[in-house]
């Protein structure tokens, strides 16, 4: 470090020094970093186990320097349940996309929430199937164009975009639900705080934490990374508002 300079930004040691395969501007890389920053800050690398989904983040284990299991498509919540029940003192998180968590894996998601499994869901909702090339997801916005809804999502046949955070917040044993984003530096900081809070709750055996990330997909949305931020602000957040949907910890404090 040169004299007179101060290091204010660095890669957490828990994030491996590798070039990521994610598209430019994708929030996955930001979310990976936030997650691993929290693991480093809480000093829990030796007792953290993560689960990757099938989707763009299928290779998350290439970047996060913690023990990880790669789940079958949609089954991360069941896998997380198995790990956490065997090792109740470990910090367990599932990292899943919208096709994974809200389409093929809906049953596993809801039942893990209903049982109040004591792990953290990191739910990356970008409203599209990124890995398979931009098909419609359960969370695709009404009239949004994708490769399987080329004229826009028709809610008459495809239903309305699923609000997973709102749905899981209705389960009694779900302790903490927040929707965050990384579309602005301020929101990114809030996302990091949410992850940290969920891990702390997990250490206190409070039950399920569910963090939904209003995420982006410049490649699938066929726009630039900057345009994807506008789309989030103008289209996504009005339908998927940010904020805490449920925090029993806060209510207990009251």
């Amino acid at each position: 470090m040169k004299e007179g300079y101060e290091l204010i930004y660095k890669r957490p040691k828990t994030l491996l020094d590798k070039r990521m395969h994610y598209c430019p501007g994708c929030f996955h890389s930001t979310m990976h970093k936030l997650l691993m920053e929290v693991v480093e800050e809480l000093d829990i690398q030796d007792r953290t186990v993560g689960i990757c989904p099938v989707g763009c983040s299928v290779f998350a284990y290439d970047y996060m320097d913690v023990d990880m299991q790669e789940a079958a498509h949609g089954r991360a919540a069941a896998v997380a349940t198995g790990i956490k029940r065997m090792l109740p003192d470990r910090i367990v998180f599932s990292y899943q996309g919208d096709g994974d968590l809200a389409a093929i894996g809906t049953a596993e998601t809801l039942h893990a929430c209903n049982r109040g499994e004591n792990f953290t869901f990191i739910f990356i909702n970008n409203g599209i199937y990124g890995m398979t090339g931009g098909q419609m997801a359960p969370t695709t916005l009404e009239n949004q164009k994708t490769s399987t809804s080329p004229y826009g999502r028709n809610s008459a046949t495809a239903g309305m975009p699923m609000k997973m955070a709102e749905i899981v917040a209705t389960f009694e044993k779900v302790y903490y639900v927040e929707r965050v984003s990384c579309n602005t530096p301020a929101n990114t900081r809030k996302a990091r705080k949410a992850i940290k809070k969920s891990f702390e709750y997990q250490m206190q055996s409070r039950g399920t934490s569910f963090i939904e990330v209003a995420s982006n997909c410049p490649s699938g949305w066929k726009c630039t990374p900057i345009e994807s931020l506008d789309w989030i602000k103008d289209q996504v957040l009005p339908y998927y508002p940010l904020g805490v949907l449920k925090d029993l910890g806060k209510e207990e404090v009251k």
Partner: peptide
């Protein structure tokens, strides 16, 4: 031992995957 009546056989086998991966005799 841990005993879970899963929501389906699909969930059960994936709980096995998690619990077995975590080192359990399952």
């Amino acid at each position: 031992y841990v005993l879970i009546q899963a929501e389906s056989e699909v969930a059960a086998v994936n709980m096995m995957y998690g619990a077995g991966g975590a080192g359990g005799r399952i």
